[in-house]
Write a protein that binds this DNA or RNA. Structure first.
Lengths: 259, 259
DNA sequence: CGGTTCGTTGAGGCCCATCAATCTATGTGG
DNA sequence: CCACATAGATTGATGGGCCTCAACGAACCG
């Protein structure tokens, strides 16, 4: 569904067809080859999940980490009166619920957006791996820190940017995270319902619709059957105030990973 | 300025007057006594900082972790046109910039709010400690995960709650984080300027002012010289939709910490 | 005591929510 | 293959929550 990531940075490849290559854990560059194998072995068989299925519900016990290997999912939180906010969009390669590593209860839910392939990792096994393999430990904490950085930027968007800027910022972010071309034009899948986009941006679906039109009419984007193409990267980033560094796509010392 | 935290949960005390006891790293319960000493030794001498001083500016190199041992500080981010959003408020015991552990550049700034006492930890020393001491590693990643959870809740507030609910939620959160009494009334220092509160909540200072009055007139809070008291916890939590579990004040296995 | 920061209050307006209707696309069963 | 159902996109009208601008009061401080 979502193509595998060719990846802008050439990561030392190991087993090219392993289920977890392409994962952010891998791309972090912290895993030795041995650790990669150990992790592959610890993980559950791949599971295919239909759209709009909860992997975890808000407040559920959390004895399993989920890794999204294909498709889209999201974390979601809700207020008592049913309003929904997505703290994170999860694309191929993302770990859905890092907290499950150390918490026994999640205060958010995880739900698929598209058809998705999911791999599970039991909490106790993950903890054991983290204790025994420094590279795995580092990869996990690195992921946590990156998520933190992304969330901070989302807060800035939701708290201080206009609806148009917010939407533009999200599209710029996804363009980079999905590894779409960074020059001139860039196309990437965007399977979100306008309602889901609104839940990510703190807006209503109606207003997302109007802002999308705004961007379309201005010739900044085009969109057709769940695919968005940014026609003018420079202008979009200008509107959004987007600077991709916060995504930490290239970790500080990916090249320095132990052999 | 801000009192030391007696702490609602009885943590196994070690050196009672050590500079880092009272810190969330300590309270995490993951540090063995030896690790506590090692950490104490690795840390810079205490530094007193005046209000409104940047410890790190946005985009600065980040070779130092800062731990707030007394007073208040905040992380801040800004848009190109100067709007400010605080992704986090930092009170006594918080680590200001966990990311400095693995990133070489921060995409947010850290600034004091009140007079504060700060302790610094060099990145390379921190990394060495994390590599050698599993308890220290676990404490750091646990802290990162908790910060994640708090940020998610803030996003929900900013994205989906009304101004009144947002403010109420923040006050409820601070009441718990500061260890104020949880029954009936609870008083705690609130040194934020209304403008700073607005920057935390995604509001203007004017509107924060109006919402504070709203809460005051309804008899829900009282505030005088930088001190807030919540008069009716139950009703405040009701308004805010506040459930303290996301703060993870008591870590899952604090009691299980190695001796 | 003058300056500066912060809190308070008012008037006016805009951005986005709300409500509601229509249109389109996709799928389903007969 | 069509009738129908359903989910999602689109459009319009209306209103309100919060912002903006501006002025004034209050507290703090050298």
């Amino acid at each position: 569904m979502i193509g595998t990531h060719p990846g802008p940075l050439p990561v030392a490849r190991t087993a090219p067809h392993s289920i977890l290559s392409g994962t952010r854990l891998w791309k972090s560059g912290f895993l030795s080859r041995g650790e990669q194998h150990v992790l592959e072995d610890a993980v559950s068989p791949v599971r295919l999940v239909a759209p709009n299925i909860d992997l975890v519900r808000e407040g559920d016990r959390a004895d399993t980490l989920f890794i999204v290997t294909d498709g889209w999912a999201c974390r979601y939180t809700t207020t008592r009166d049913g309003a929904r906010q997505l703290p994170a969009l999860l694309v191929a390669g993302d770990v859905a619920n890092l907290d499950a590593l150390m918490f026994d209860r999640l205060d958010y839910g995880v739900r698929t957006i598209t058809h998705a392939t999911i791999v599970a990792l039991q909490q106790d096994r993950a903890l054991a791996l983290v204790a025994q393999h420094p590279g795995i430990a580092r990869a996990f904490t690195w992921l946590g820190l990156v998520e933190n950085a992304i969330q901070s930027k989302w807060m800035l968007s939701i708290g201080r940017r206009s609806a148009l800027e917010r939407l533009a910022h999200l599209l710029c972010e996804l363009s980079v995270r999905l590894g779409a071309a960074n020059d001139g034009e860039s196309s990437f899948p965007f399977p979100l319902t306008q309602e889901q986009a609104g839940d990510a941006l703190g807006l209503t679906s109606v207003h997302v619709n109007r802002m999308m039109q705004h961007l379309r009419i201005r010739g900044l984007i085009a969109s057709a059957n769940r695919l968005v193409t940014i026609r003018d990267q420079a202008k979009m980033r200008q509107i959004a105030g987007f600077d991709p560094r916060y995504l930490h796509i290239a970790p500080r010392d990916a090249q320095l990973a132990p052999p």
